[in-house]
Design a protein around this nucleic acid. Structure first.
Lengths: 169, 169
DNA sequence: ATTTTATGTCAGCTATGTTGACTTTCCAAG
DNA sequence: CTTGGAAAGTCAACATAGCTGACATAAAAT
């Protein structure tokens, strides 16, 4: 719809929209995502945590002080599922849940030093793979990569994604 | 390593390799992958199948006649895990497992008509999202997308990925 | 005062992964 | 021809992480 309907290719090839191309894209997503999670998964085996803990830690690090509800929206799971994860992280002293200043019903989530250390270990591994892929593909490819992924997201999530800015190093 | 170490940027900016850029890439992968699986997951709820069945069906469709072992490598799960999935698909008449002609220990896997119909329904949904994202981003972005994903894969899997060619429409 | 929201918790279920042990079939090398 | 090992299938037991449903508490909003 954006570039015109079939038959009205204004000079631009639409070969990249063939079923074969789309299927290759689907497979690329599957294989790449598996590799993408493999490194942190290996590290997490040494702890008593899983991928769900990693995700929670990631977003708490990225948006320190975010509420449980916000985290819920970003992770896209039920509160029961998140609660199980969050409870162990708080009990183990990796996450601190402070009662909200304005609204005391809310809990603002922060990583403790210990939590930040695990975050660092996990994200070092994940960023190393991402960096290597970025280097190999080059800046133009990276821009395209980000564009396609962003276009693939659900609109509500895309807004969340775009609103996240790093506050750590 | 490919484009030079920090300080020796031969005219090419390395800003795309900052931690912030890498973290945005990590988040993009997470959010996009979730959207990517959401449509087929919704369809699968109407059947007694899950995401694991979808993956098996996808690859059997893409490489009709592939052996159980090949499928195992591509899915990256244990034979016990795959067997549970494959058994229900065979019992329900979606997949046919023919004894190998040369090596009778092997099973060559094929979709039945019924299996092909489900594959079509699932992949229609998944391709629709992929097509929409490709259209929105454009052919240059798609090329970059594929390059980065490919660079992210583990080398052995990348070879499998590159060897897959479509035989269906 | 009542309703709604944010959070937490208990119980039970399902899907999908894991390891380990074992059997059957059958190719291929001695 | 026998034997070793590969391919496949199966059984059992378990872990993770998702789900629904029901219910409790505290605090904000109406």
């Amino acid at each position: 719809m954006t570039t015109g309907s079939p038959g009205t290719q204004g000079g631009e090839s639409l070969l990249f929209l063939t079923d074969e191309q789309l299927r290759k894209g689907i497979e690329a997503m599957f294989f790449a995502y598996r590799a993408f999670t493999a490194d942190p998964d290996r590290i997490l085996e040494n702890y008593e945590y899983g991928r769900a803990h990693h995700r929670a830690i990631h977003f708490i690090n990225r948006q320190p002080g975010l509420t449980v509800n916000t985290l819920l929206t970003m992770l896209g799971v039920t509160k029961q599922s998140l609660n199980r994860v969050l409870r162990t992280l708080v009990e183990d002293g990796l996450v601190e849940a402070r009662v909200g200043r304005k609204d005391k019903r809310e809990r603002n989530l922060f990583l403790t030093q210990k939590g930040a250390e695990l975050e660092r270990e996990l994200s070092d591994a994940q960023r190393a793979r991402m960096r290597s892929a970025y280097r190999a593909a080059g800046p133009a490819a990276v821009a395209g990569f980000r564009q396609v992924l962003e276009a693939m997201m659900d609109p509500e999530i895309r807004r969340h994604y775009q609103s996240i800015r790093d506050t750590s190093s």
